[in-house]
Amino acid sequence: MINVTKSFLGNKAKFLGYVDSIYASGWLTNHGPLATELEDRLRDYLGVRNIILTNNGTLALQIAYRALNLSGSAITTPFSFVATTSSLQWEGIRPIFADIDKASWNMDPQAIEARIDSDTRAIVATHVFGNACDVEGIARVAERHRLKVVYDGAHAFSVRYRDRSVLHWGDVSTLSFHATKLFHTIEGGAIVTNDDALAARIRLLCNFGIVDTDTIDGIGINAKLNEFAAAMGLCILDDMALILEQREEIARRYEDQLGDYFDLQHQQPYSQRNHSYFPIALANEDQLLRCRRALNAKGINPRRYFYPSLDTLGYLQPQPPQMQSRTLSRRVLCLPIYPGLPRHIQDTVIQTLVQESSRRSQRQTERFWPQANATDLMEQRFSLPDSGFKNIY
């Protein structure tokens, strides 16, 4: 089965060389030399001031909330991976959803202010599919209401906004280095901040609050990255130029071939994408399910991502419906994109989707113009109702 992603494993000989060094030193975790090297290299690669490695991206979010002393409620997006919301609820922070912009698919700054409550202390936004949020718009809202800003940057590795890392924005940004991500450490994550004092607090929180062998300064948890995970990260980082190049090539081909048939995510101005995913929005859920079945029949497994809209989660009810997110979540399908994706597989994905779209168009034409001849049907182009989405990836 061809899945929506496939983990890039890098150079095996290089990885085994790092493993040999681990065996030689006997240092497996607790800020070992490979984790330290990876942190230093990522700081330089991303161009950020402080980066603290963690053992997964969800803990990175939870520690960020703790480090900022968040309580009460936080305004967040309903269109994201569930961890964006569940991490808030887990930490006793009430999620309040603000709807998304129908073009960028990110949280709409104009929707935030109406949702701010008396106990709201933060905005938690996601750079969805690696598309930068309207960070300047969100910053203005946060400044007016004295709110902290946390960015879930799980998809935003290497994404740039106005010629620097998008991770510079907000009080804290978090990353996921899960095996499905374009940069990974098998399991892992990171926290980024420009605030040195906050970075020091985050480091304590990641290591039980331990200052040294004789001192514990407050409560903490174990979020440290182990040496084997760091070894994988060092191998992957060496190949980032190749990974980004191949992803861009695949994404551009999808865009060229599918842009006239489906709605694509509108890229945030002044931003540079990393092509971590290639999502398309179909006309409706029925068409999505038909297309998925057609691809599954050919051994291809696209993913409904993100589904369902998080404002529908049972443990958060009742919630006012966020209609842009609910509608989009029923329409979005992510297509296979990863280095090494065979060209003929991508051709099959494209051809299958175009054929399914054309069948729908033909059925509509036969319904309204039953006398249309075969030539007319072959020449017509599939078009969606005006939904406000732009055909730009």
Rank of each mutant, 00 (worst) to 15 (best):
I236C: 09
I236W: 00
F278D: 02
L237Q: 12
G259Y: 08
R252Q: 11
A283P: 07
D286S: 15
P269M: 00
N222D: 09
E255N: 09
A231C: 13
K224M: 12
P279A: 01
I280C: 10
A294T: 08
F228V: 11
H266I: 02
N274K: 11
L234S: 11
A229M: 02
R253N: 01
R253H: 11
N226E: 02
N284K: 11
Y270W: 12
G233E: 05
S276P: 09
I221K: 06
N284G: 06
R292C: 08
L237C: 00
Q265I: 07
N222W: 06
N284Y: 02
E285P: 13
A251L: 00
R273A: 09
A297F: 09
N222T: 07
D256P: 05
G233W: 00
E249R: 09
A231I: 12
M240E: 05
Y254R: 08
M232V: 13
I280A: 05
D260M: 08
D286W: 08
L282F: 09
E285F: 14
I250P: 14
N226A: 02
H266S: 03
D238I: 01
I236R: 04
S271I: 08
Q257L: 14
D263M: 03
E227D: 06
I243T: 06
M232A: 03
N226H: 03
R247Y: 04
D260T: 06
H275C: 11
E245W: 05
R247L: 11
Y270F: 04
C235S: 09
D260Q: 08
D260E: 12
N222K: 08
I280N: 10
R292L: 14
Q268T: 14
P279W: 05
I250E: 04
E255D: 04
I243C: 00
P279S: 03
L295K: 04
K224A: 02
Q272N: 15
D256G: 13
R292F: 01
C235Q: 10
N284Q: 07
